[in-house]
Nucleic acid binder design. Structure first.
Lengths: 108, 108
DNA sequence: TTGACATGCAAGCAAATGCTTGCATATTGT
DNA sequence: ACAATATGCAAGCATTTGCTTGCATGTCAA
C-alpha cells in the first residue's frame, strides 16, 4: 500500500478525523482520554489510532502503562505538495510557487 | 455524508487518483479516453468517476453522445484550508499565513 | 435507416472496513 | 501482594467497496 493510499484512507473516516481534531486541541493524550469523546468502544478507537499511526499522522510514546499520542503534520504537507498545489488553477499557481520558494528558505 | 467525507473517500483510491492525474495531464477527456489507461472495465471507470463527481472533484459536460470530464480544484483548496493549514507546525504557520494573505490579494 | 459507437443501469460477488465482545497482559498505588 | 487501571490481541459479523458481466438506451455517420 502506497503512502498516499495510507494517508487518504486514514483521513477518509469521520471518527479518525475527529481524533485528529481532538489531538490538535490537546496533543499528547492517552488512549483513555481520547476514548471519552468518541461514541465507540475503546477497541474501536484503538483500531482507528492504529490506522492513523500506519499513515504516520500520529506518533506514540509510552509512559509506563499509558500510551501518549502526538500529531505529526509532515504527511499532511506531503499531501499538499502532491495533491493540492499541483491541482491549483494556473492563474494562482505561479504566485503560490513563488511564495513557496520564499518559504523553503525559511524551513527549519 | 459530509463534504469532507465525500472528498477524502473519493481520494482514498489509487484508481481515482490516477484518473485525477490523467485529467490533470489532459483535461476534458471522454469516458472512453479515460478508460484506455486504466486496467479495468469501462463500468469500473464509470463508477470511480461517479465518486469523483459526487465529491465535486470532477464536473462533466455532455457533447452529443460523449461525456467530457473536467477537474475542479476548488474542493482540494477546501481540504487545504480545513485539514492542512490548520495542522501545520506553529513555526511554519506564521510564515505561511503571511504569504496566504499576500496571495489573497492576487485571487481572481 | 441502419450499424457502429458512447454511455447508462442493475444485479452479483469477493474483499475490505468498522465495530463489537471476551479474554489476556502489564503497570501503578496502597 | 493485590486490586484497580491502561492497554493489547483475536475472533466474529454487518456493511461498504471495487469490480465484473449482461443488457438497454441514445447518438452519429454513411
Amino acid at each position: 500500500m502506497s503512502d498516499a493510499d495510507l494517508l487518504f484512507k486514514a483521513l477518509a473516516d469521520p471518527g479518525r478525523r475527529k481524533l485528529m481534531d481532538r489531538l490538535h486541541a490537546h496533543d499528547g493524550q492517552t488512549l483513555s482520554e481520547l476514548c471519552q469523546h468518541l461514541d465507540m468502544t475503546r477497541q474501536g478507537v484503538t483500531q482507528h489510532l492504529a490506522v492513523l499511526e500506519a499513515a504516520n499522522l500520529v506518533v506514540v510514546q509510552w509512559r509506563g502503562r499509558e500510551k501518549l499520542h502526538f500529531l505529526n503534520p509532515v504527511p499532511l504537507q506531503e499531501i499538499y505538495d502532491r495533491w493540492i498545489r499541483k491541482f491549483e488553477r494556473p492563474r494562482l499557481k505561479a504566485l503560490r510557487d513563488l511564495k513557496r520558494r520564499l518559504e523553503d528558505g525559511g524551513e527549519d
